[in-house]
Amino acid sequence: MIELAIDFTYQGKEYPTLVELAKALPLNSAKLVQWTEDADRFAAEAGSLCYESEPRLGIVNHCRDSGHNTVLEHNIFSFVKKVPIFVARQDMRARHASFDERSLRYVRLKDGGFEYYIPPELKKPGREEELNQWIYHHEKAFELYGHYTDEEIMENERARALLPLGIATMYVDSRNAVGWRHHTMKRLCLRAQEEIRLLYRSIVNQLVEKAPRLFGDLNMPCFMKQGCGEAKTCGLIELDPVTRRAVAYEKKLKRSQVPVETKL
């Protein structure tokens, strides 16, 4: 029987509800909260049914690398995320994902419901004036929001239109293994925004821990089978002009004497 595991712990502390866990997360982070138990094994079982063979774990690698994605789709993984809105909106572009997001309609200023993102550039020495400006504009927006809503000048859903894109939002993001693979490969690319790339590196680490066969190969696209698909590259990694894979990756493949076509 397929079972879904649930875990509301973070940094050694168990939270009674998903809301409390989400609030405890630092801004721009994600925590795996639900997943298919023994996902690698079940993918192997599904693959063995297709080929009418013994359910060896190597089948997962074969299906994963050959694009036999339906075998991977039976496994579900859910994260709770606490990120700036501008990061969350990149998730909304994902295919085959299910979301449930905290509604700002129910957030009151007096309840301390707002956190916001501060870019690392503003935390550097000599940027105190710009940092103070950033903080001022956010706090002023919250002040106006509180005035409009607490004084019942307008409904929350209208007042929220003035809130900056850097404020935190919280949501559950559920996808099957293929959905996570598809979006993650794009967001690990060095051309992706740093905040998004770092978030997805954390997500990959958690996925690999639970299902190393399903996700163990995930990396920047230029360090994977398909190679770089960007018309404009990052310019930071030397690419093979034919395969558009990283030269360092090509050398690694040759040293391991594994054919590029299979890479099992």
Rank of each mutant, 00 (worst) to 15 (best):
57 L>Y: 02
218 L>D: 02
18 L>W: 02
160 R>G: 09
166 G>M: 04
71 V>Q: 04
68 H>N: 11
222 C>H: 01
149 T>M: 07
24 A>M: 07
24 A>D: 03
163 L>H: 09
12 G>Q: 09
26 P>T: 12
19 V>T: 14
180 W>A: 04
149 T>N: 01
188 L>A: 00
72 L>C: 10
65 D>Q: 15
211 A>C: 06
131 L>N: 00
54 E>K: 13
209 E>K: 10
260 V>T: 14
234 C>I: 05
115 E>Q: 13
183 H>Y: 09
133 Q>L: 14
75 N>Y: 03
239 L>P: 00
22 A>Q: 00
99 F>R: 06
153 I>T: 11
127 R>V: 07
76 I>K: 03
264 L>M: 14
189 C>N: 05
74 H>Y: 10
244 R>W: 05
225 K>E: 03
62 H>S: 13
226 Q>D: 15
184 T>C: 15
165 L>R: 12
237 I>R: 04
8 F>S: 07
184 T>P: 05
211 A>E: 04
80 V>A: 03
63 C>S: 12
37 E>L: 10
163 L>E: 06
11 Q>G: 13
36 T>K: 03
257 Q>I: 11
203 I>L: 07
250 E>M: 14
175 R>P: 03
37 E>M: 08
133 Q>I: 12
87 V>D: 03
25 L>I: 11
111 D>R: 10
24 A>N: 06
134 W>M: 08
210 K>I: 13
15 Y>P: 07
24 A>I: 09
95 R>S: 14
166 G>Q: 02
41 R>N: 09
178 V>D: 06
221 P>S: 01
67 G>S: 06
36 T>C: 02
256 S>A: 15
194 E>W: 12
105 R>M: 11
14 E>S: 15
113 G>Q: 01
226 Q>N: 14
110 K>F: 06
231 A>P: 08
243 T>D: 10
204 V>K: 03
159 A>D: 05
25 L>F: 10
263 K>F: 10
67 G>D: 05
100 D>M: 11
221 P>I: 05
196 I>T: 05
132 N>Q: 15
256 S>N: 14
62 H>E: 08
137 H>W: 10
219 N>R: 00
56 R>A: 14
45 E>M: 11
170 M>F: 01
155 E>Y: 12
184 T>D: 00
223 F>M: 10
79 F>Q: 03
94 A>L: 11
99 F>G: 02
154 M>V: 11
263 K>S: 12
115 E>N: 11
133 Q>R: 14
222 C>L: 03
227 G>D: 06
96 H>C: 11
259 P>W: 06
4 L>E: 14
